[in-house]
Design a protein around this nucleic acid. Sequence first.
DNA 1: TCCTTATGTACAA
DNA 2: TGTACCTAAGGAC
Length: 272
Amino acid sequence: MPEGHTIHRLAQDYTAAFARTAVHTTSPQGKFTDAAALLNGTVLTTADAHGKHLFLGFGAAEDPTWVHIHLGLFGKVTFGPAPAPPPTDTVRLRLANDTAYVDLRGPTTCALITPPEKQAVHDRLGPDPLRPDADPAAAYRRISRSRTTVAALLMDQKVIAGVGNVYRAEVLFRHGIDPYRPGKDLTRAEWDAIWHDLTALMREGVRNNRIDTVRPEHTPEAMGRPPRVDDHGGEVYVYRRANQPCHLCGSPVRTADLAARNLFWCPACQRR
DNA sequence: TCCTTATGTACAA
DNA sequence: TGTACCTAAGGAC
């Protein structure tokens, strides 16, 4: 379930369960065996997240050895209390200490990197609404100069880091913006509102570990509709609601392919 | 038991 | 633009 909020939550959860303790590290699947042997018995010092990238720092706080993790589309992380059960053969990396264990499966990336390599990842990512140092103006400079659709720009991690297919669909709906609008036609005021909204939505996403985007006045209870929650676990306006009536105007929600991803929007509520 | 699908990205052509 | 990669759940048979 990896959009940026998931990764920031994982950084918190890894820290809560393992920071300042020596960890037993293994790679039952075998693809990270040498690195796991190198890290085994060292202390998890810190965890960091930028967009959908997670970094676990082991050893000396001034100069940690970093594990770079990207979940991709399928990656999953599961935590549990000690004693850890026998791992299944798809576990890429298991951390275990006296009180807890955590299994990583199916990541696109799980690699040891140096501090300069970590910096290079930060350098190629755009501002992340969940990071305090983020500069939304840097994102707007790229958006306002681009003929690319705002839907594609929101998914471009060099422009803004951490937004995925759910937040993209939902934030464009919440601001009444057609996904096919060219970036250069987005006003500064519209961008500021989107950024501000993403910051709040994603912070709530970290807190609840799920994506909820429906305003209180539009919840099923408030509108006298039957309760409904998407498979991903949250309450949304348009994501994965193709051909169902828009919660606000009743028009059928539209869907289309955009750069090999599913796009969802309300053609009546969202304006070019 | 097979097929499809998914909140992602990188690289080849 | 297409394809490869990684996993697991759900639905069709």
